[in-house]
Amino acid sequence: MLIRIVEFIERFLLRLGVASGFLTLLTMLIIVADVVGRGFFNKPIPGGNELAVLIMVGLIFLGMAAAQQKKHNFSIDLVTGFLPPGPLRVANFIATAVSTAVCGLLAWLTIDIAHAMTLSGESSYGVIAFPIWPSRIILAIGLVCLTLQFFFDFLRAAGVLPEKPDEEEKASI
């Protein structure tokens, strides 16, 4: 049952990653439209930059869990690479526990501030007033998802869940 639930959530987190990718397209289109509008018609998109930033926040944070699931986050295996299976499992257990705790703390604090900023209607003011609080909410959601993913990795390291087969090697940035 637990395995089923985790699999379901992980699939959802991957979908979020796909959605994050598509936001690249949206960011691009807004900026291109803004440039064309300003350059040729003297009509930039009002709040275009602010909108691009809002979408970029989604692009950044909604994809974090998927990036972790697909092992896109670099780590150094200089020492761990030489560890025998036993100690390696212990190291992995500690690493995933610390990751879950730290990310959980970050997520919790950002939820707090997202809540406060939503109540106060936080907005920026360049040429027009543009709401910032939606970015805060998206960001907090992204970090909660990342915490979940770290937690699942922790459950695997703790032996509660079976290891996933290695599908893909580490990403290349």
């Binding site: 930039p44 003011y125 040429v127």
Partner: peptide, 26 residues
């Protein structure tokens, strides 16, 4: 009239009232 002007805050409103387009490039 018709200029694209980088401006913020009350000055953005001012140039708008003067017929320019305020732009918020950093």
């Amino acid at each position: 009239n018709g200029l694209k002007i980088r401006a913020v805050l009350s000055i953005a409103d001012t140039v708008k009232a003067l017929g320019a387009t305020p732009v918020s490039v950093p």
